[in-house]
Design a binder for these strands. Structure first.
Length: 467
RNA sequence: GGCCCGUUCGUCUAUCGGUUAGGACGUCAGGUUUUCAACCUGAAAAGAGGGGUUCGACUCCCCUACGGGCUGCCA
């Protein structure tokens, strides 16, 4: 008998873009399921019609796709399940675990007001909890859960451990509104159950909600899923991550040019650990990820560490895959598409470009010698190394390169010999060479550029610069 | 207010009663170098505070402080 299949889910509400915290929650669920041959489902919690938009929904899906988090099946719309949610509420009503409450919002407000002043619990105690059906008035009503009022409830959370609260902390929450629509707390439970979700991994802002939800599971006789409430991500100042910390949306990082693999690695490691492992592959992450490795305290978002991981991942990426991701980056930023010549050049130069960039714009900066075409316009800094003396040396070097064998050793020999003849270090000649070839002070090694550019283009650029 | 959760270098973290409290990012100092980098070597840097329990606590318990969450006919 094998273990039952693991089913996790990510359930964002489409009231905004995919937040970095949400992205990590999705990642944890994805990692957990994928590492165990399970399923990772997506459910859009769009029951708040006034704040939910299709644009947000699409943006969230796009963000997940960017991060490489693929989900099984079609995304489920929570709003579409309203009838089923109501059905469950009615079943609870029939079975006596819920009741009709005819209290008006004014009455409830007044109750809370009084409770606050008295310093007691503000949980509404409905007078209708045990009312006989014969006494029910013919007015709109909500369906409330009949919560236990004595005793205590303990929930075992995979991250937080065993958590116990007194049942007097639980109130007779509304299940179905007076207009017949289900409330979030009901919808989540019904959907998770119907979708066969075995592990609920989500933000710890839902920890106390889990107790409310557990009441519904129990009333329906359903098995509780495994809960894992993950601490939220904070900004560098230790406050909840928000707009004033800068970018908070996953898509914003994509637009800034962070590679998805680096982001995945960073987000996985943020709040979760596997011994001293810091830098790891997706396969390792899937193998290692477990609920026990999740930390109990909120982690702060550290852009420097993200960048470091991104640099390592770019350097380790397969050239073709990297070029592919670079093109996708160009597309989301609205940059013009690559010409065939540029694509070929980038492909050839990729080994020399990728080991020095944290984000794509940096890689592109180093790739300027490919992106630009003759005549190469040196920028201000590069122009400084193209003085008359330098031009003279370049003019002298050009015919020698023209006749050199076109491999790294030969090229290096030619330049070194010339440098020595002028009593200069290689560095003194590399400056002007770089300026002539790339028009920038930042680029790959001059020899690597020559090899990628080829003899004709190299000679042409040097001739341009020497003129 | 009530209830719940959390607190190890600046940051992410290891440690699951006995360690000179380890690693990584960042920082600083040297080295190397055809630019920017990268790379190499080294350094500074931590158990919130107070009580217990124990031969021995970062680790277990209690209190305090601080941070966070929940307390809706929002999700």
């Amino acid at each position: 008998m094998s273990e039952p299949q693991v089913v996790t889910r990510f359930a964002p509400s489409p009231t905004g873009a995919l937040h970095i915290g949400g992205a990590r929650t999705a990642l944890f669920n994805w990692l957990y399921a994928r590492g165990r041959g399970g399923k990772f489902l997506l459910r859009i919690e769009d029951t708040d019609r006034s704040r939910s938009t299709d644009e947000n929904r699409d943006a969230i899906l796009a963000g997940l796709s960017w991060l490489g988090l693929d989900w099984d099946g079609a995304p489920i719309s929570q709003a579409m399940g309203a009838a089923r949610h109501a059905e469950v509420a009615r079943q609870m009503l029939a079975e006596g675990s819920a009741y009709k409450c005819f209290a008006t919002t004014e009455e409830i407000e007044a109750f809370r007001e009084a409770a606050r002043e008295a310093g007691g619990s503000t949980h509404f105690r409905s007078p209708w909890r045990d009312a006989a059906e014969a006494d029910h008035p013919d007015v709109p009503f909500v369906i409330r859960l009949k919560a236990p009022r004595v005793g205590a409830t303990t929930l075992v959370d995979e991250v937080q451990g065993a958590v116990t609260i007194g049942n007097d902390q639980l109130d007779d929450m509304v299940l179905l509104r007076s207009d017949g629509t289900p409330v979030y707390m009901l919808a989540v439970v019904v959907d998770d159950h119907d979708m066969g979700v075995t592990h609920v991994i989500r933000g710890d802002d839902h920890l106390t909600n889990a107790f409310r939800q557990a009441m519904i599971y129990r009333a329906m006789g359903w098995d509780l899923p495994v809960f894992a409430h993950v601490p939220l991500i904070f900004g560098p100042d230790g406050k909840k991550l928000s707009k004033r910390h800068g970018a908070t949306g996953a898509a914003e990082y994509q637009k800034m040019g962070y590679p998805a693999a680096g982001m995945r690695n960073y987000l996985t490691r943020l709040g979760w650990s596997h011994g001293d492992a810091e830098y790891f592959s997706d396969a390792e992450a899937r193998d290692w990820f477990d609920l026990g490795g999740i930390g109990k305290s909120p982690a702060r978002f550290d852009i420097k560490k993200l960048e470091n991981l991104c640099r390592l991942h770019i350097a380790a990426s397969d050239d073709a895959a990297l070029l592919h991701e670079l093109e996708a980056f160009l597309e989301v930023t609205g940059a013009p598409a690559l010409t065939q010549g540029q694509r070929d050049g980038l492909r050839d130069a990729m080994p020399h470009l990728k080991d020095r960039a944290k984000i794509f714009p940096e890689l592109l900066e180093k790739a300027h010698f490919i992106m630009a075409s003759r005549p190469i316009e040196p920028d201000e800094k590069a122009a400084k190394s193209l003085d008359d003396v330098s031009r003279g040396i370049l003019a002298e070097l050009t015919p020698q390169l023209q006749n050199a064998s076109w491999d790294r050793d030969a090229l290096e020999a030619v330049v070194t010999v010339l440098a020595e003849a002028h009593g200069l270090g290689l560095g003194k000649i590399a400056g002007p060479l770089r300026a002539a070839l790339a028009g920038r002070t930042t680029s790959p090694s001059v020899f690597d550029m020559m090899l990628v550019l080829g003899r004709d283009e190299t000679v042409a650029r040097l001739t341009d610069a020497a003129a």
